[in-house]
Design a protein around this nucleic acid. Structure first.
Length: 594
RNA sequence: GCGGGCGUAACUCAGUUGGUAGAGUGCAACCUUGCCAAGGUUGAUGUCGAGGGUUCGAAUCCCUUCGCCCGCUCCA
């Protein structure tokens, strides 16, 4: 889900600033770069670390019901079989040689018709100048019963669509060297829609492969994880057994993931190596909630989502997490004015998902996804249980106790009710009955709500929303542009800049060094003594440092004794300055950055 | 992967019909008792994206390749 781009050079300015000030570099740049990979420089590293920490704090340390996990990037290949990534990510694909549209090799409909070959195509220009031309051989199937003229028109349109604006309008394209090659019957070598010749079938795998061990044969293949989530499911049993957690609870993980993106683009937005922040929050199935509480709370506009309630069903939990995540974004400076939500329709949803919300951010290149919050039912754990053969059911004492108190008739009518209200029409009576019998024993596979966010996308969102160019006019009436990154102080790479007014006065420098030493244990401080004071302020504005502290002669007590040991503190966004005692400095700054 | 555009100093860019590389900003050093990219003095920097070819000579022409941007791809 993404929408229209904005057409200024904002993005270019941000990319340029990121490079110039050491926030983000292209990976391996001295060797010409490598597509879809990006490095964080000194300041970008701090920014990213701060963002990672805010997520981790909000999701684990500030809550009682979520624990952490830090799994390996390479896991047993069977994990990706079970999750479905090997199959859905690795089909044999063929591409139409005219339109480049992809089809699965095993899904090509057989076609009958005449094969026409063109040696190329060119744009017809009135002035007779050299225009756009295509020197590639085009082999196209003319469907049985298709008129030759409508066929030619169709080919011109396909070419025009694929060539972009440069080729001009379809009627301005001239097809060259037309030749009828042969008549084919039931051929699977042509694209079902365009009729264009398909290239060789080749595996199209979105997972990055590697080999374990020295032999590097197909038996040694392993994958770099395309998402961090699966490790959480794979370690679900161990976490349960070792951590005394009780459903509902969550497991959070932050880590690198890899996808062989066809088209990395929009700076770091779609990268091949990226960092995910994922939570799997395990909840009781609605049936279990119903057995325990007699009812399941469902969502309405009046629902109070501030604190979880015992009778919540998956829908409430899903809404709850959307609200939680929204609150998180607000806490780091991304408010409702830059966010948007996309509730996936039934058709969009993966077959196992019950609901999914995308939290979108208004990037300069369009509104695009920052986080997905999916209600995935029990799909993943069930898959891993089936593939591994290991029991992944959870024993719920509360549920067991509730069911033990039920009569046989109550249980029978519960099964009846569950069957009549089943969401999956293919579920048989036997399956429903056996699931219910498990529930009566207190056993179920937990359902899961999955808020899954991209750390690099978050960093990019923060950068683009913080970036500002402000026209400031000085005393002499000269105006110029002030570039400033308006980071929330909590996530700013550098919290405070400390400046002696002049560097050739040892007393000022010494005092400034003292202030730096005092602050350093508590925050990232930057000391700068070079150049004019105004320049030093502006240098810090550009990397989003929220505060600047200047040590001047009044600090030394030259002007008046009352001002001794006070400094000017300058605020980034307003550029306002005021004097505060050095002794108040630390508590003032800590109040702003925590 | 396909089509179009682009690639020259840290950044933004100029560079004539092929004749050996330039501006602004930034950066570094010094001076300055004063607060918003201030002023002055001095200074450093480029395999002209990479490789190959044509040529006496290539940033410039040709081929190949890599990367970036824009279009077709999806879901962190």
């Amino acid at each position: 889900m993404s929408t229209k781009p904005e057409t200024d050079n904002r993005m270019e300015k941000i990319v340029s600033l990121c490079k110039r000030r050491g926030i983000i570099f292209q990976s391996s740049e001295i060797y010409g770069g490598i597509g879809g990979f990006w490095d964080y420089g000194p300041l970008g590293t701090e920014l990213k670390r701060n963002l990672r920490d805010t997520w981790w704090r909000a999701m684990t340390r500030e809550r009682e019901d979520i624990v952490g996990l830090d799994a390996t990037i390479i896991m047993h290949p069977a994990v990706w079989k079970a999750s479905g990534h090997v199959d859905t990510f690795a089909d044999l694909m063929r591409e139409c040689t005219i339109t480049n549209k992809r089809v699965r090799a095993d899904h090509v409909e057989a076609q009958t018709g005449s094969i026409i070959r063109f040696t190329g195509a060119r744009a017809v220009l009135s002035e007779g100048t050299q225009g756009w031309h295509l020197d590639r051989t085009l082999t196209v199937l003319m469907k049985q019963g298709e008129h030759i003229e409508s066929f030619r028109k169709r080919v011109r349109q396909l070419i025009a669509q694929n060539a972009g604006t440069s080729a001009g309008k379809p009627e301005e394209i001239e097809l060259l060297g037309e030749e009828r090659i042969e008549v084919v019957e039931n051929s699977v070598d042509y694209h079902p829609e365009s009729g264009g010749l398909l290239n060789e079938a080749r595996p199209f795998n979105l997972m990055l492969k590697t080999y374990i061990g020295p032999t590097a044969t197909e038996d040694d293949v392993a994958y770099l994880r395309p998402e961090t989530a699966q490790a959480i499911f794979a370690q679900f049993r161990n976490v349960c057994d070792s951590s005394r957690v009780k459903v509902p609870f969550g497991i959070a993980q932050i880590g690198k993931a890899f996808r062989n993106e066809v088209t990395p683009k929009n700076f770091t937005f779609r990268s091949r190596e990226f960092e995910q922040m994922e939570l799997e929050f395990f909840i009781k199935p609605d049936e279990a909630v119903k057995l325990i509480h007699g009812k399941v709370a469902t969502w309405s506009d009046e629902s109070d989502l501030s604190e979880p309630k015992p009778d919540w069903g998956w829908e409430m939990w899903h809404r709850y997490w959307v609200a939680q995540r929204t609150g998180y974004y607000a806490s780091i400076g991304l408010g409702s004015e830059v966010l948007d939500y996309y509730w996936q329709s039934r058709e969009d949803l993966a077959h196992y998902a019950r609901a999914c919300v995308d939290i979108l951010f208004k990037f300069p290149f369009g509104t695009d996804e920052l986080e997905g919050i999916a209600a995935r039912g029990s799909f993943d754990l069930t898959q891993h249980q089936n593939h591994s053969g290991k029991q992944l059911e959870y024993f719920d004492e509360e549920l067991k106790a509730a069911c033990d108190a039920m009569s046989a008739e109550q249980k029978a009518s519960f099964i009846e009710e569950t069957f009549s209200q089943r969401t999956n029409p293919e579920a048989s009576r036997e399956e429903i009955t056996s699931t219910c019998e498990k529930l009566f024993k207190g056993l179920y596979i937990p359902h899961v709500i999955e808020p899954s966010a991209g750390l690099d996308r978050l960093a990019l969102a923060i950068l683009t929303s913080s970036f500002d160019e402000e026209v400031v006019t000085d005393d002499k009436g000269k105006s110029e542009t002030r570039t400033v990154l308006r980071f929330h102080p909590r996530i700013a790479p550098i919290k405070v800049g400390v400046f002696p007014l002049l560097k050739n006065k040892p007393e000022l420098v010494a005092k400034a060094r003292e202030v730096v030493a005092m602050l350093r244990p508590h925050m990232n401080v930057f000391y700068d003594e070079t150049g004019a004071i105004g320049r030093r302020y502006r240098r810090q504005d550009e990397v989003g440092t929220p505060f600047g502290v200047t040590i001047d002669f009044e600090t030394l007590g030259e002007a008046s004794p009352e001002l001794k040991d006070t400094v000017t503190i300058r605020e980034r966004d307003s550029m306002d300055q005021r004097r505060i005692p050095i002794s108040d400095l630390l508590s003032f700054l800590l109040g702003k950055i925590l």
